[in-house]
Design a binder for these strands. Structure first.
Lengths: 141, 141
DNA sequence: ATGTTATAGTTAGCACGCTAAATACATGTT
DNA sequence: AACATGTATTTAGCGTGCTAACTATAACAT
């Protein structure tokens, strides 16, 4: 019986998360962004000039993924790359003005998503939910 | 402040779900399956001979996605396709023996995942969590 | 100085999942 | 019978994300 409960949660998690992704993807299309690119930019909005390895670590993805994302984002004029002067192996990633401009609109879309997700969840419940999510997160990493 | 809480949950959801996906993907590799293919097969284990449109609806994805997945699964010998005799437009999808054999191993992997996800969540908490997840799910569809 | 090992990033190739546009067949209308 | 509309699937092309294998540079050891 507990097993059944577990099963439902795993499945729910998948459904909710993939539906959120679909929704968000559609929402970002107006900004000419693909889902995932916003997270890379979000890291740069905190501070740019970081290396691709740092992006990998932050995005929890593999180097080839970052290579490709960075290539596309550069092609679309959101970022540019510069070789590090000390270490010729590393590439440092910087925001263009076009990339900087997206911060507010993306933040708005993200907040819209939050609201949609938690629409039917009361404040007290949100606290519990956050606790449980955080615990699951810690469990996995 | 509520806003901050919402933000955390949305972000946690993403992290947990993508880490689960990564884990599961690795786990399925031993069975020569990619993540996503298991869900298509799972629908066929309930009953095969269904159409691609029915698969679309069940998997909540678009027709081209199903076309490609079905193509790969057929190439790898897990399923086969047969044109419907009444309606020459529709393709009906059937399991091969190789496809049928995967039911138990995949079920096992899935249960492993559940356990990993809910490891630190107590039974009472699981009930609450399920309730909240279900409510979010209903919210989105 | 030379050879080994480690690190940063790229390339090739694959699967998922999408949109836009095409094809093929079915059904309804005139 | 001919035409329009609708439905099921496919093709082309793109982005995310992966693994395996490669290149280029750096750092360390003999």
């Amino acid at each position: 019986m507990n097993d059944k409960v577990g099963c439902d949660i795993r499945e729910s998690l998948d459904k909710v998360s993939s539906q959120m992704r679909r929704d968000y993807s559609e929402s970002l299309r107006e900004l000419n962004l693909h889902v995932g690119q916003d997270k890379l930019l979000a890291r740069l909005w905190i501070g740019d000039g970081i290396t691709q390895m740092q992006l990998c670590e932050h995005l929890k993805c593999e180097p080839p993924t970052v290579t490709n994302m960075v290539k596309t984002l550069e092609l679309n004029g959101f970022i540019y790359r510069k070789r590090d002067e000390q270490d010729a192996r590393v590439m440092r990633i910087y925001l263009t003005d076009k990339g900087k401009e997206l911060e507010k609109p993306v933040d708005f879309k993200w907040k819209q998503q939050q609201e949609k997700l938690l629409h039917s969840i009361l404040p007290e419940e949100r606290l519990i939910l956050r606790e449980l999510m955080k615990r699951m997160e810690r469990n996995l990493f």
